[in-house]
């Protein structure tokens, strides 16, 4: 979160411009003036890291949003309507046969590397997974009796889909969405690192790492800080996803469920202990 806030407000308070080249300040170590040091062009690493966060977040958020919406739609429809399920799922399977990153790589190579294209490529790489997860969640919810109950009261398919099933698959959507967010940031970094990302003039974490690899022995801070930024961002997004899932689960607010879950667990343990195995 701190990274997000910092990056959004960056242009207001940053002491150095992220693109300003100061030839006399090349490859300087950490100092009060340049907190994270400077790079081979004398640009401030701290400023660049923060500025890159803006780009990374934009890409991550867009990919997560679009992939989630697309994945949810596809997942809902194919999970609910048996007729289209087979066709859609085979298509998705085909897309999933390629590793997501490779698919994105190929797409970027084909359509060129600007921000929009990267978002498109990453969306296509990640939404099949999303659709898969949502579909299986839908299949599970569909089995629960209230869906049948809604049918018998004459409720239409559309209403059932969006008012009965959708709210009950929110938690996998949220979790998968935040993971996609994190994965998109990683993937963008990876693409840039491979030189297939956004043009090197725009600071992104991947670009910075790629440039830093030549100087890794003489100026390790060049890769440490962008790397650290990626790690903390991805980690905090994953934790955020878990937290959101718990917050959206009505059962976690339910009184008895805790005790129920508890007793289920203990039953297994008992059986084990009756069977003599130490738990």
């Amino acid at each position: 979160m701190i990274i997000l806030v910092a990056s959004v407000t960056s242009s207001v308070w940053l002491p150095h411009s992220p693109t300003l080249i100061e030839p006399d300040q090349r490859l300087q170590g950490l100092s009060l003036q340049h907190w994270f040091g400077t790079d081979n062009f004398g640009r401030d690493v701290f400023a660049r890291t923060i500025a890159a966060a803006k780009v990374s977040f934009f890409i991550g958020a867009s990919v997560a949003l679009i992939a989630t919406v697309m994945g949810t739609l596809v997942g809902l429809l194919s999970g609910y309507f048996k007729k289209i399920d087979f066709l859609v799922m085979r298509l998705i399977d085909g897309m999933m046969a390629f590793p997501a990153l490779l698919l994105a790589l190929a797409l970027v190579a084909a359509i060129g590397g600007n921000i929009t294209n990267i978002i498109i490529a990453l969306t296509f790489a990640f939404f099949p997974q999303m659709a898969r997860v949502i579909r299986s969640a839908v299949l599970k919810v569909k089995q629960i009796q209230f869906v049948e109950a809604a049918k018998t009261t004459g409720t239409g398919s559309g209403t059932i889909l969006f008012f009965y099933i959708l709210p009950n698959v929110v938690s996998p959507i949220i979790v998968q969405g935040t993971f996609t967010f994190a994965k998109a940031i990683l993937a963008e970094a990876a693409l840039s690192f491979l030189g297939l990302g956004i043009s090197p003039t725009i600071p992104t974490w991947g670009n910075m790492l790629q440039e830093a690899q030549n100087y890794i022995t003489i100026a390790p801070w060049l890769c440490i800080f962008p790397g650290l930024a990626i790690v903390t961002t991805v980690l905090s997004l994953n934790i955020l996803g878990d937290g959101l899932r718990d917050a959206f689960d009505p059962h976690s607010r339910m009184k008895r469920s805790g005790a129920q879950r508890l007793s289920n667990k203990t039953k297994r343990e008992t059986i084990n202990s009756i069977g003599g195995r130490t738990v």
Binding site: N264, K267, R268, T270, I271, S273, I274, T278, V279
Partner: peptide, 22 residues
């Protein structure tokens, strides 16, 4: 550990739902 010795050997338990207990 002592409890483990008692469970099964001296006190056993059966449950409502045999499917989830096996």
């Amino acid at each position: 550990k002592e409890l483990c010795n008692i469970r099964g050997n001296e006190i056993s338990m059966i449950f409502q739902d045999p499917l989830s207990s096996l």
